[in-house]
């Protein structure tokens, strides 16, 4: 009946700077949930706090106040190795600039999250080849990143983010460095993964086109959620238009 919640954040605040220094509150109480299998987008102007929010969600940074739960586990109490292990197991990451290791092949890059958890060699091979097939990069496995195009690199990065079956995939502008064709291909694949494999995705983006692939979009303004758009059953084109309209009014 009820779909489980993979990400739940309540009243999260983030203030930068030590108490005796100049302080800046980047997040001023943010609350929302992501259900399993949802594809959620986060939009907002530059400096509105998107990266800050994503860093907190991905346990790279700690909130000043508020609770964060991922896959049912409160992450406030975790520290050090627990935190790293938690990240390694539950979270998948895609970066704007791919962040692949140039001295490892695509295969080795994708295997990294598994070897970090000391998964056996046979299993590594199974997992990597299966995710590579899903993302149609199974021909590229033995190539080094320098031999790949931007779109191919980001697919490898997506595969690396998903190979260990994380509870949620976070992306910070993953299409930011891609041309529009590669961006569209990547988004199609993500949407397909989301629909067919019920991968939960949280995407931070500037780009209305990318955002139109989401089922739900949260708009952040000055550290708070200003508005929420839900796609429902509408076609993507219509949703895209609505996003554009919202952005027009929202930012002014």
């Amino acid at each position: 009946m009820d779909t489980p919640t993979v990400v739940s954040i309540k009243d999260v605040q983030k203030t930068y700077g030590k108490p005796n220094e100049k302080q800046y509150t980047a997040l001023k109480g943010i609350t929302f949930d992501v259900k399993q299998g949802e594809f959620v987008g986060i939009m907002g102007a530059s400096g509105s706090g998107k990266t800050t929010l994503l860093n907190i969600l991905s346990t790279l940074d700690k909130p000043t106040a508020g609770q964060v739960e991922i896959n049912g586990q409160a992450i406030n109490g975790l520290k050090g190795n627990q935190l790293a292990d938690f990240r390694a197991k539950e979270i998948g990451f895609m970066f704007q600039d791919f962040n692949l290791l140039e001295n490892l092949t695509a295969y080795e890059n994708m295997a990294l999250p598994l070897t970090l958890q000391n998964v056996g060699g046979k299993q590594v091979q199974d997992f990597v080849t299966s995710i590579a097939k899903t993302l149609s990069i199974d021909r590229l496995l033995n190539k080094y990143p320098t031999e790949l195009s931007g779109g191919q690199k980001q697919r490898v990065a997506a595969a690396r983010a998903l190979v260990h079956k994380p509870a949620i995939l976070f992306g910070d502008e993953p299409t930011g460095a891609l041309d529009s064709k590669s961006a569209k291909e990547l988004l199609d694949t993500m949407a397909q993964l989301n629909e067919q494999q019920r991968v939960s995705i949280l995407l931070v983006t500037h780009d209305p086109f990318s955002a139109s692939y989401c089922q739900r979009i949260l708009f952040i303004k000055d550290g708070q959620i200003g508005q929420e758009l839900v796609r429902g059953d509408r076609p993507r084109k219509a949703f895209y238009q609505e996003i554009l309209d919202t952005l027009g009014t929202f930012n002014h």
């Binding site: 050090g80 790293a84 292990d85 990240r87 390694a88 197991k89 970066f95 962040n99 999250p113 970090l116």
Partner: peptide, 16 residues
């Protein structure tokens, strides 16, 4: 720096 930062982000223990 970038490489190690990325590895930390995907959940590599600092000790590792």
């Amino acid at each position: 720096v970038k490489r190690y930062t990325m590895l930390a982000k995907i959940g590599t223990r600092r000790s590792l």
